[in-house]
Design a protein around this nucleic acid. Structure first.
Lengths: 340, 340
DNA sequence: GTGCGGCCATACAACGTTGTAACACCGGTG
DNA sequence: CACCGGTGTTACAACGTTGTATGGCCGCAC
């Protein structure tokens, strides 16, 4: 069907290895043979067979990306940017979804799919700090978005604590004092929820504001619907609050919706800020203030670090990179004004 | 490093081909040898090497999915469901983004990446009807979402025309008569825009309502921002309208936002319906009525059809499948009421 | 006792590629 | 003129797997 080295060789009247040498730009091929072979290649439309190359080289030219689910806007946009960054490096991306489930996340680490890729970008959600040891795998692995202390692997992560602190301070700067936090995960310390909450605590503490347990609301997965439910729960408790820090934008948008149903004016009665800077936040009414965690930079760095790890092997020193964050002020914590 | 057939064979004291026979459940292997070999496999943790298998079999165990971009919620959710469906069939998905650009869409069809996959699910946006011939490729290809007449390939598509007609009729049933259409693509006939617009026309015609060119607004890519711009353009024209059919949900959400900025009450002054049933529509205020085009079914069918095509070769008859659609009534065309 | 057919196991080749070693050829040097 | 080093090309093996052909062994029938 498709042409092979041998076919080209036959047509050019040389050995098939010479064709291979031409294709791989080996030295010591005379200009005349090179031209002859090139002509044959063009005539037959020869393209090297990837599986054969893989078998020989042990490289697949693919990397894996394991995320909770693409339906979450943050991960869809992350995947978008990872794919774009990988394409520039001539690498394809195989996406796996874990649903944020610990078991499925562990499966991803040992599953048969690892053979299809040269390495994995992994954004875990269900793993706890105790699982750190399980990350000592024998293939190139870069962790995204989570920070598991002293883990044995490369990390590219956002400044969860500092950024959350800045978000909370932004609300404090507006004069708000009763700031609810939406989306806690009971008992979690080192996941995104735990880290962002600790930034929230730090901000309150620094300003000498008492921490009120009643203002912190647990939520399951960070979907919009859970943001809505968390807000309903908060309202039912009857606690006073004048601001909301939602641990991500989806939660914020769900909460926003419920507040509006209840006639709460945003930002007049309650200001709200999210986290992630997903596109929807620009278009909600009011538009949503948020933290831009540097998603594009994360994607770019992650691909970079993974490819370097693949290149350099397990002995190279472990790397931990953080992207720069930025508070994005929009209407939900500011003045209502027309926006794109 | 990792064990091969030969390693297992050495340990079990048989030829490596016998190990292969055990792994592949070949007949004519005695129970005793089978047990012996199995023990060796377990001891060494042997896993067949995928690239070697691919080289031998010509199959990669991967399929491609080419979409405009994952940042568009519809495609993210489609990708989610394609990956899930593929996983059940033990196939991985390699995602490529075309940006909806004709050139890049053509590249996808001939690019080197085709070698990495056994077939392609392709959701084109920039191709025109004239490009139909270019779809006569020599690898398994299933088209998604678009309908190119008499194309040479399998299709899994939604009922664009009928569903758009039903959406328009839904607005007509509410007594609306001046229905704007947002998101047209000038001159397009067979793309989603063209098809949905023709459903819009059909509905008007059936009810004997005059078609007014001023009510149809062009837009570029179906992003929220373009929906916002289209609505602004419509308002600037100063034409009267009491309803909006946005050709997809993102456009609708962008338009909704602008209407609210302008103090237009939805649905009281203007009712609006979108298309695609993306998650955000459930949580906007008001929540967005839309058409559920049967995305999950499309994903499932598409994977099914593609795998069958891969299995049965190019001679098998061409298939064209349509998913069932459903009008989803929410607040933007109905009564305001609390929703999840 | 020879021949035959069913069962089991093995040897060999092939998939298409690349690394290594070997082999010709050439001009220049001793 | 034999030798040598550099250049260009080739042969061979290997990556790990599976299909095909082959070859033993056994028991049964003639």
């Amino acid at each position: 069907m498709t042409a092979t080295l041998r076919d080209v060789a036959r047509l050019a009247g040389v050995s098939f290895k010479t064709v291979s040498n031409v294709v791989n730009d080996h030295p010591y091929v005379s200009d005349t043979t090179r031209a002859k072979v090139q002509a044959a290649i063009d005539e037959l439309g020869y393209r090297p067979n990837r599986q054969a190359r893989s078998l020989r080289s042990g490289r697949t030219g693919a990397i894996g990306l394991a995320v909770p689910e693409l339906s979450l806007a943050y991960f869809a946009q992350l995947a978008d940017e990872v794919i774009t960054a990988a394409e520039k490096r001539d690498v394809v991306v195989v996406i796996e979804q874990t649903g944020g489930d610990r078991r499925r996340e562990l499966d991803v680490l040992s599953g048969p799919r690892r053979q299809m890729t040269d390495g994995l970008l992994f954004s875990p959600l269900g793993l706890s700090n105790d699982d750190g040891g399980l990350l000592a795998v024998d293939f190139p692995l870069v962790l995204l978005g989570e920070r598991i202390f002293d883990g044995p692997v490369d990390h590219v992560t956002m400044e969860n604590v500092d950024a959350a602190r800045a978000a909370t301070e932004h609300l404090l700067d507006l004069g708000r004092r009763r700031i609810a936090a939406l989306g806690a995960h009971e008992g979690e310390v080192i996941g995104s929820a735990g880290l962002r909450l600790s930034g929230y605590h730090a901000a309150l503490e620094a300003r000498g504001i008492a921490y009120d347990d009643a203002l912190v609301v647990d939520a399951g997965p960070w979907h919009r619907i859970n943001g809505a439910e968390a807000m309903r729960a908060l309202l039912e408790r009857g606690v006073e609050f004048d601001a909301v820090f939602a641990l991500n934008d989806e939660l914020a948008l769900g909460a926003l919706r419920v507040m509006q149903e209840q006639g709460i004016r945003v930002p007049d009665d309650v200001a709200i800020i999210g986290f992630d800077d997903v596109d929807e936040g620009k278009y909600s009414l009011p538009s949503l203030s948020t933290v831009d965690p540097g998603r594009r930079e994360i994607a770019r760095l992650a691909v970079e670090v993974l490819l370097e790890r693949i290149e350099s092997g397990p002995e190279a020193p472990r790397r931990e990179l953080r992207s720069a964050y930025r508070i994005v002020e929009r209407e939900s914590t500011g003045v209502l004004q027309p926006q794109g």
